[in-house]
């Protein structure tokens, strides 16, 4: 187990952070995920790659943590999924046009925070973990069509949020 922790803890914490947006929670998620993996290790085939199986646990653990902590989300003033006012914002400039701006990373941070947790998880799995849509569907136990739609919405909302931030700053 020690070698597994050594090998995967940092990557797992980064995944957990991107979903929870909280360093302390990310560490808690990693601990809980390893404990869950340990408890179910007798069902794990050691010849199979450990990482995809384990990252599914990390993602789900992170989602559970975020969803349990609704109070903190509301204090952050995060947008809830499906908020119609959010969808009315002008997308603004294309993402390509602002890619070179030094503030882009900060804007992505804020945009990530504003996504609903499941959308954030979908973005992290697709663009950080390089999961396919089918793998995301399996991890989240959602139909592939739902995942496709969620990713589409997340991309659209990321664009909108980035555009909104730029407009506010400009």
């Amino acid at each position: 187990m020690a070698s597994l922790v050594e090998r995967y803890q940092v990557h797992a914490a980064r995944v957990a952070y991107l979903i929870t947006q909280d360093r302390s929670q990310a560490e808690d998620v990693v601990q809980a995920a390893f404990l869950r993996a340990y408890r179910s290790i007798d069902g794990f085939d050691p010849r199979r790659p450990f990482q995809p199986w384990f990252m599914r646990i990390v993602v789900n653990q992170a989602l559970q943590t975020v969803q349990r902590d609704r109070r903190e989300l509301s204090l952050d003033g995060d947008r809830q999924a499906g908020d119609p006012s959010f969808m009315l914002h002008d997308p603004g400039p294309t993402l390509e046009s602002i890619a070179e701006q030094t503030e882009l990373k900060q804007q992505v941070r804020q945009a990530l925070k504003a996504l609903a947790p499941e959308e954030r998880a979908a973005v992290v799995m697709r663009y950080y973990l390089d999961f396919t849509e089918r793998e995301i569907a399996a991890a989240l136990e959602r139909p592939a069509g739902t995942v496709k739609w969620r990713l589409h919405e997340a991309r659209k909302q990321l664009r909108t949020l980035l555009g909104e931030t730029e407009a506010e700053e400009g």
């Binding site: 050594e6 803890q9 940092v10 601990q31 990373k105």
Partner: peptide, 22 residues
């Protein structure tokens, strides 16, 4: 992907270690 990676690396350092807690 690059920005997500950079953000994750800025927040979670390479030497993070939670083995003792685990």
């Amino acid at each position: 992907k690059r920005l997500l990676t950079e953000i994750a690396h800025e927040e979670i350092p390479d030497d993070m270690n939670v083995w003792h807690e685990i």
